[in-house]
Amino acid sequence: MIALLLRDIRLAMRAGGGFGLGLAFFLIVCTLVPFAIGPQPDLLARVAPGVLWLGALLACLLSLDRMLALDWEDGSLDLLATAPLPLEAVVLIKALAHWLTTGLPLVLAAPVLGVLLNLPVEGYGWLVLSLAVGTPALSIIGGFGAALTVGLKRGGLLLSLLVLPLYVPTLIFGAELARRGAEAQPTTTPLLMLAGITAGCLALLPLASAAALRVNLR
């Protein structure tokens, strides 16, 4: 299992797309927002938590179709399916590798981009916490979408169409947590809900993803 995780991380780093692309995309989104809505500091401060969350979510989405499709094309998935590792573990590890190479850098970069968007001081800790708790769910849900669309030639767009509605609860609670944190309001409920969603996804979605993958492998 560790071997698979290490291989995926190594591949993401060597291929050059993993770390860099998602981060650059996140930066560009956060740069474009003030152009679109205007530079007023108070307006930016108000939308900052939501924009940062949305940017992180879209950046996560960007690399989802590579999560399983590359292994599908070169036949690695067939071989992994006959390996001692259960497919549930394979998809979970792949989601974890995706999070480590995409989600985690976004979490770490978010405070820097928060400065650009004039995020209030109280908000930084909550922003990082909300992203740290929420982005693993994005990777796992994305893994489910990738498993559904892995056999399709142009699965990328369909993948977005399938995954984005599933992102709604995570986005709502994550952005709400960051917003409440920035406005110094009570944060317990959204934090617990967000953590609950991530825990639920972690426990249950790999079963569905592995089922979808088995269907696609036949």
């Binding site: 509605p165 709604v168 709502i172 609670f173 709400e176 959204p190 969603i197």
Partner: peptide, 9 residues
């Protein structure tokens, strides 16, 4: 889940 989230939101 979305239904509850939206209600909360």
């Amino acid at each position: 889940l979305s239904r509850y989230a939206v209600n909360f939101w």
